[in-house]
Amino acid sequence: MNIKEEKRQLRNETMKRIAELSKDYTLEADKKIYEKVINLKEYKEAKVIFCFVSTEDEINTRNIIENALGSGKRVGVPKCIGKGIMEVHEIKGYKSLKDGKYGILEPKDECPLIKSEEIDFAIIPCVSCNMEGYRLGYGGGFYDRYLEHATFTTAVICREKITCDYIPYDEHDVKIHKVITDR
């Protein structure tokens, strides 16, 4: 089995595990992750934050985004612009978002671009990750391409119950600096 097949199999297994998580656990885990994120030195010192906009099955990032905006930080969120290619655009709140590709909220067209070199800290999604900072994404390669030359600090957020000891990776997979779980 090659790495691509290993990832596909692990992604399918993990999605089943995610579906089995209790609502109580996910709410409690998300609350703990939020507290850890907003208390990180890198987050507190950042003037420009890049954060994904969560879907229903992901860790809820709305509180993180609203905390950052309320703290006077500039907040950028991803916008898919092509196959495996995304940009980061600044939002002023959830009213700056519209339905985008893959059922994910993304910035409206009038939202200004934030260049990678302006970003201080980024919160990255995953299906699963290991404690070394390797993540299993959704398979589109958007984040690995975007983060390939990034100079800012990155943190992946993941519920403890869906972390894995082993995440298959190859040379194009970008290792994330920090792993934040509910533990």
Rank of each mutant, 00 (worst) to 15 (best):
D182N: 15
T153S: 09
T61Y: 00
E148D: 15
R135N: 07
I59L: 08
I49G: 03
L97C: 11
F52A: 04
D109H: 09
E58L: 06
F52P: 05
K41R: 14
Y138W: 12
T153E: 12
G140V: 07
I119H: 01
I114H: 01
G76M: 06
C126R: 03
G100C: 06
K4R: 12
N12D: 15
I85R: 11
I59W: 00
E90Y: 00
E171T: 08
R159H: 08
L27N: 11
I124T: 06
T163P: 04
I180D: 00
E90C: 01
T14P: 07
Y146P: 03
D165E: 15
I157W: 03
A19E: 13
K73A: 06
T61C: 04
E20Q: 12
T61E: 02
C129E: 11
K115L: 13
V48W: 01
R74D: 08
E28A: 13
G70A: 12
P78S: 07
S96M: 07
T181P: 11
I49Y: 06
F152S: 09
Y134W: 10
E42S: 07
I91R: 01
N130P: 02
Y94R: 01
N2I: 10
G141K: 04
F50Y: 13
Y166N: 12
F50Q: 02
E56W: 01
M131S: 13
L21Q: 10
L105H: 13
K4C: 01
D165I: 13
D165N: 14
T153K: 15
L69T: 10
D24L: 07
T154S: 08
S116W: 06
I38C: 05
I59T: 13
I114N: 01
K79Y: 07
Y34P: 04
V156K: 03
D120A: 03
E87I: 11
E6A: 08
I124P: 05
I85K: 15
D173R: 02
K175C: 02
I81Y: 12
I33V: 09
S22H: 05
N67T: 13
K47M: 08
K79R: 15
C126N: 03
V77H: 04
K32R: 15
